[in-house]
Design a protein around this nucleic acid. Sequence first.
RNA 1: GCCGAAGUGGCGGAAUGGCAGACGCGGUGGACUCAAAAUCCACUGUCCGCAAGGGCGUGAGGGUUCGACUCCCUCCUUCGGCACCA
Length: 826
Amino acid sequence: MSTTPKNQEDRYSPAFIEPKWQTYWDEHHTFRSVRRPGHPKLYVLDMFPYPSGAGLHVGHPEGYTATDIVARHARMKGVDVLHPMGWDAFGLPAEQYAIQTGTHPSQKTKENIENFRRQLKMLGFSYDWEREIDTTQSDYVRWTQWIFLQIFHQGLAVQSEIPVNWCSELGTVLANEEVIDGKSERGGHPVQRIPLRQWSLKITEYADRLVHDLECVDWPDTKLKQINWIGRSEGCEIEFAVDQYPSSLRVFTTRPDTLFGATYVVIAPEHPLVETISAASCKDAVRAYVQAASARSDLDRVATSKDKTGVATGAFARHPLTGEKIPIWVADYVLGSYGTGAVMAVPGHDERDFVFAQKHDLPIIEVVSPDGSLSESLLSPFIEDGISVRSGAFDGLPTPEMKRRIIDHLERHHLGKASVSYKLRDWVFSRQRYWGEPFPIYFPVEVANDGDPRKGDPHTIRYDQPIAVDESELPVNLPDLHDFRPSNDPRGPLARALDWVFFQRDGKWFARETNTMPQWAGSCWYYLRFLDPRNDKRPFSEQSYDDWMPVDLYVGGSEHAVLHLLYARFWHKVLFDIGLVKHREPFHKLVHQGMILGENNEKMSKSRGNVINPDDVVREFGADALRAYEMFMGPLEQVKPWKTSGIQGVRRFLERVYKLCLSSEAEAKADEATLRLVHKTIKKVGDDIEAMHFNTAVSALMILSNHLSTLQPVPMDAARTLVLLLSPITPHLAEELWQRLGGTPSVSLQPWPTYDEALVREDVVEIGVQVNGKVRGRIALARDASEDEALALALEQENVRAHVPDGSVRKIIYRPAQILNIIVAK
RNA sequence: GCCGAAGUGGCGGAAUGGCAGACGCGGUGGACUCAAAAUCCACUGUCCGCAAGGGCGUGAGGGUUCGACUCCCUCCUUCGGCACCA
């Protein structure tokens, strides 16, 4: 080996130095978050992981390295940084593992957390580990339940009967994605849509604020996704009287201007009036249709959406303006859960109504025309704005005005009113699972004299009278079940823990809620618990809130763009309303890291055999190489494929840095070119980190290192600066080199180097010379040189002169330090 | 279908109105070596040319500008999200 180092210690050996500095940081509490008066603060938050059995994925270190670099850089700039980590540890996989192995989910969860913690520590993230939290621990669950109670007391947590995909064979409720053709995806068991008692949170009451407050946060397109998800639409509700029936049918429409074109009314199969208004002659057909529709999941309904099925109810509605008799149909293209569950069908101006009307031979009337002229018949629905026609006294009005006039007319005659609908539904908040937070709710139990519901004596649980557990009795811990399996009891596995469910107080029996909260609950407020994670009096102190909130930077995957980020914002707003938090929005700046694909450009997955395991990468290349490589791959937000040859290149770079730093000499002085490059790099790396352009920061460090390695000897001052600039990205390497270059640990506590503006600005610049916009040469000149000087220099060049015949110059464009463009006559 | 993002060498990417391709990977040639690996040095968009140099070139087409990867319009493709929301 030609480059054999003098001894083993002079070789870059991440396997040795990385654990060494991780231990050092732990022992010295290097990254403990402390708030010092008069210093700026930065709360840098990662989306905390679900500690799965598979361990860390290479996608995790991507976002985590990005935030770590920001945090480490800020600390060196004198900023107080809160950079915590924890575990979103409730959830299905641990429960399923428990069912398979007969162990308790907490056991597997604990093991997984230990593995995740080991892996994160192995990557050298500068978390304040003293603030670690685990959503399944009772001192965390206690406050999750406490917040639920605040939501409950605000009247925002209510029970209702909601149709869900219930599979009695599997003993559980299934997600829409898990139901295919009315059968369970796994096992092919029948699935029914049955209404079950569920808790829901009234997030729709916050819909407008959830849209509006997005204005003040620095988020990517996620804002638009949320706005679309909430799907606010303005329109009106209109009453249609039903023939032979006392109450009326209410429909929601965004096109009241097309009211004169309504030729029939459609109600959803779930509509409460379906059964009652159906004519005797149609009842059987209607029942069969409703039955068939309920066997289909939402997803399944959509899949066959081209075919618009439906049956007539035999009932008729009265058109509110013309009094005409129009038929009422049942069809599953109308959703029971949106608007009023009923629509006025205007086939002339709605695609779905048009298709349905054609199929079922219902009349199609044109009431909006592009130019006000009448058409004999419509070959396709006209859905754009236009001029109202065939609308009686309203003829000739343009669509927007027509809408206002119709709503106004309906309101004055008590036939309808303006109204807003949202695609967003209230949040079904209960799960029939074991491994989740119990609800801090119980219910009175009616039981015959001396009966004991625990022994199966007849009893009735009064679900209509929920009682909040007293705050002093929190947390309500999970009972120690041995069998977590779901059963055909829709109350969930907790219902089997009879001694836990039922209790007596003042001689009366009560039953606990046996549903548990969904996995989202814990992640809805964890950023607040990090402020003050060991507080046993309150979720967090006011002081800690003022110290650190809001979250300045929040980084995580875009798969959470709507659900988690919407739920957390909703809870935050409820807490805002009760005065617990002081900002409207919790997360100021949001960034989503892009997915890392396998080497074959496909999504990493076990089945594709292209999964990269961080443990293997660290063993082979080191944590610093992994960190630097993931940052160097490309822009953080972008999807990028993994390349082993790429991380090899980064590893080579780190080895060159190591070697050149150790060969540096304290007496060596940097020449001016070196000094200028050092200062430019200080500026570039600092600016890039702040802009989160980590790929170009690494590139700038490579350029500096390439330059320094051409020097003989390498000036130690320059090497030390290189080490400081590298330290947020490759902290272990930097600590080791800092110490070896005579610095006092920790490099993480050193001030970030400053640059001299005069050295960053080149005095002599090289600019391109264009003739008619084409580059014909380059000249070096003072950055403030005059146009005449530049032109003279340019014309000294043979190639430039060749393109500029005498007397042909028409115009000169000169931008100092940028470009000289000579325009000549052709 | 609707909403959003992105299209630049063989590959990851850089440049956000001023010298296109920084930096890295890969490739080619060379040094070192008995040899290989590792390392180091040089070259590496494409076409024409011995060279000097020139033509072309940032998905396609148009426009604005002295000048466009960058701004505007139309279209194509890819990716992400939503999807009977009346």
